[in-house]
Amino acid sequence: MKRWALAPVLALASLWLWAPGFSQEDMTAVDASPFERPQRAPALFKHDAHNEKAGIDACNECHHVHRDGKKVEDESSEGERCADCHGRMTQGRVPSLTIAFHTNCKGCHLEQQKGPVMCGQCHVWRPIKAGAAAE
């Protein structure tokens, strides 16, 4: 294999590694860095494209704040990391990070009857080929 052939692979890999550092416009996948040993590929997610398509304006639609088990309507948490609240395991009424992501994404998709709901529609092993599914 010629060396130059590795370039796109490396580029892609670095894109993944740095994804959380990028601004939201460039985001292609959910930040998986809090997971110690992720079993699946990070969920594909293009923040701006998604919100535009879904018509979501309020940040706290996803970046919610819960207090005493209730969603606080006029607060939002986009400045924080999801993992700041959601740990590895479910604790009391705070679901684990995995479940929080799933409920947040899949829950809405099921309600709206739009968007991916099957494991592999978000956790795509080969995002270039199947990237369209995430949109």
């Binding site: 099957m118 494991c119 592999g120 529609q121 795509v124 092993w125 080969r126 199947a130």
Partner: peptide, 13 residues
Amino acid sequence: LAYHQWFAYEILF
């Protein structure tokens, strides 16, 4: 097949 996302994923799922 679904886990490896080979062939028609959604149908296999």
